[in-house]
């Protein structure tokens, strides 16, 4: 009988936390240098009134960016698949957007847009390209035999898109969304740091910067833990969604093979 798959990483995490706690306690390391995990946990609870709203702000930004990147990336990929000249005209700009670091774009966006809009735009820019690139790849990789089959049946272009190209591209589209999910959070955090928005619109990244200025190192760690947990939850939800949609038929998610 094999142990559950989660056992190994959970054991490794527990051992690392125990070592960290021991190191801090045995050496008497002050909290402003390195807080013990137990103190970070306590801070998570004691500072919940500050951290929870900020977590919601960051999550809301990341999810809105992911939604916009998914719909925008998919729509543009469909247009690219329909008109190759459009792909040739616009794809280089999508690449430029991707390779330019968002931390360099954010200050520029903050000149022209409200901080929250600029943060959303940064998160969108980071998440958009992998979704566009994967969807484009999927939509242009449809099995030639199936395309011929649809032509033989005199399918319309809309029928070909809905019944053939989109379902055939679903694994790549979902892979793009899984990558974009994590990147939308990264983009939101980077842009929040650049924006430095205080008050009700402050996200977790701002809380980290603010806590750093105040030498409140336990809160910095607590905010960081929340960002990591948010990233893990986004990854897990998107993985689950992908497995649900692909499990009956795709090799990456299918449980068994017969015959």
């Amino acid at each position: 009988m094999t142990p559950p798959r989660a056992l190994a990483p959970l054991t490794a995490l527990a051992l690392a936390l125990a070592a960290w706690e021991t190191l801090v306690r045995v050496n008497g390391v002050p909290a402003y240098i390195l807080p013990a995990p137990s103190l970070v946990l306590t801070t998570l609870w004691s500072d919940r009134a500050v951290l929870a709203p900020s977590l919601l702000v960051t999550l809301r930004t990341a999810m809105a960016a992911l939604f916009l990147a998914t719909t925008g990336g998919l729509a543009l990929a469909i247009l690219f698949a329909r008109a190759r000249w459009l792909e040739r005209a616009l794809y280089p700009f999508a690449v430029i957007m991707q390779v330019t670091p968002v931390v360099a774009i954010a200050p520029l966006l903050l000149i022209y847009a409200e901080p929250q809009t600029a943060v959303l735009a940064c998160a969108f820019l980071v998440a958009f390209f992998p979704i566009l690139a994967n969807a484009s790849l999927g939509l242009s990789s449809t099995d030639r035999g199936l395309v011929d089959l649809f032509r033989l049946s005199r399918a319309t272009r809309m029928q070909e898109l809905v019944h053939l190209r989109l379902p055939a591209a679903l694994p790549q589209i979902l892979a793009g969304i899984r990558i974009g999910g994590g990147l939308s959070l990264v983009g939101a955090v980077v842009a929040e740091i650049a924006a430095g928005t205080a008050g009700a619109g402050a996200g977790l990244a701002f809380r980290i910067v603010e806590a750093g200025y105040r030498l409140n190192i336990p809160r910095m760690f607590a905010a960081l833990v929340l960002i990591a947990l948010a990233g893990l939850v986004i990854f897990a939800v998107l993985n689950w969604l992908s497995a649900r949609l692909l499990s009956p038929w795709h090799e990456s998610a299918a449980p068994r093979r017969l015959g």
């Binding site: 035999g145 199936l146 011929d148 089959l149 055939a168 679903l170 009956p248 795709h250």
Partner: peptide, 15 residues
């Protein structure tokens, strides 16, 4: 009306 059978079964794997 014509039917075509390809060398590969060319079935839609998702259906």
């Amino acid at each position: 009306a014509m039917g075509f059978v390809f060398q590969d079964p060319t079935l839609m794997p998702w259906a």
